[in-house]
Amino acid sequence: MELLIEQLKQQMIEALNLEEMTPADIDTDAPLFGEGLGLDSIDALEIILILEREYGIKLTNASEAKSHFKSVRTLAEFVQQNRTK
């Protein structure tokens, strides 16, 4: 799980252009949107792409994803349960 969390953080830093951030700078339990990391709706779509490309998880809309996108930890849990690759 810790490995997956680290991997997700790295993939997010790259895909979301989180300039000058390292995985250590991202709080695993902090909110991804609004406060915390301050991501927005476009970032959410990019995370959906990460899930699709890297883990073979297909989400059809952003609202379906909402509950799993609270923090890096909830995202990692969702990936672990649903990954197809």
Binding site: A15, L16, N17, I42, D43, L45, E46, L49, E52, R53
Partner: peptide, 9 residues
């Protein structure tokens, strides 16, 4: 590759 929303916007 799939289109990137962050690029397309």
């Amino acid at each position: 590759q799939p289109a990137s929303p962050a690029v397309f916007v």
